[in-house]
């Protein structure tokens, strides 16, 4: 069964002469429980695909289906219970005046949970932060701790599909290892499906089962990680990318 189906997706910004086509005719499937990577350089449109799925990039055409249900222009509240996203920069993705408790509490409230206190405690434990971080403000947290809070927020509605937009590119390598391990554990515990965007082939190679290589808004190749590890890319651009990152 496919968790996410994308068919002939076009995303553009602006119109007429100023129109920029960020994604052109992208198609791929992500199976339930799978971890799928989107790889490419800056401006290749990989993050734009995530933003189109979540509705943050409103001008798109083609077909996006989550759990077999096609998405229309506006997304029902139910959609956000299924699909959540973790942003790239943990320094920008937390409200500077909201404590960890407020961030998680509000998210849970919006999704209609009643036992908010117990759930906040559980979420913090799940992401390895623990109780003493509950009432802190973002400026009292390190980059890695902030990203854990952002992951806890994404997990709050108990989603099935998690979109990860370069979740570790703003972090130090030792912190990156912690976050990647956490994401791998969470995927196993909660049976999550991941769609992960990254410019770092080794991170995608570590986290994902399959990946798509993007260039100038188009998907040039879809391959599995075994082929990536064996350096068996077929498209010249993916070969070039592979060579540059070893």
């Amino acid at each position: 069964m496919s968790m996410l189906e994308i068919e002939g997706l076009n995303v553009w910004f602006g119109r007429d002469r100023d129109r920029v086509d960020a994604v052109k005719q992208a198609s791929f499937n992500v199976g339930a429980g799978e971890s799928f990577g989107l790889v490419g350089e800056s401006g290749s449109g990989k993050s734009t695909i995530l933003r189109a799925i979540t509705g943050l990039a409103p001008t798109w055409s083609g077909r996006i289906a989550v759990g077999g249900m096609a998405i229309g222009r506006s997304r029902p509240k139910q959609f956000y219970k299924k699909v959540q996203m973790v942003f790239q920069d943990p320094y920008a993705s937390l409200h500077p005046r909201h404590s960890v408790d407020a961030v998680l509490g509000e998210t849970l409230h919006l999704h209609g949970f009643n036992d908010i206190d117990a759930r906040v405690v559980k979420l913090l434990d799940d992401v390895g932060l623990g109780q003493k971080f509950r009432f802190r403000y973002p400026h009292q947290l390190s980059g890695g701790q902030r990203q854990r809070v952002a992951i806890a927020r994404a997990l709050a509605p108990e989603p099935e599909l998690l979109l990860l937009d370069e979740p570790t590119s703003a972090l130090d390598v030792s912190v990156q290892a912690e976050i990647l391990n956490l994401l791998a554990d969470l995927r196993q515990e909660h049976g999550l499906t991941y769609l992960m965007v990254s410019h770092d082939l080794s991170v995608v190679g570590h986290m994902c089962d399959r990946l798509a290589v993007m260039k100038d808004g188009e998907i040039v190749e879809i391959m599995d990680v075994a082929a990536l590890r064996a350096m068996q890319a077929t498209h010249p651009y993916s070969q070039h990318l592979l060579q540059a990152s070893v």
């Binding site: 030792s174 290892a177 570590h206 986290m207 990536l228 590890r229 070893v246």
Partner: peptide, 15 residues
């Protein structure tokens, strides 16, 4: 702690 393409591991070492 760096993930490596040529040496896959289930978990990365944490510093």
């Amino acid at each position: 702690s760096l993930p490596r393409l040529d040496a896959p591991r289930a978990r990365l070492d944490v510093l």
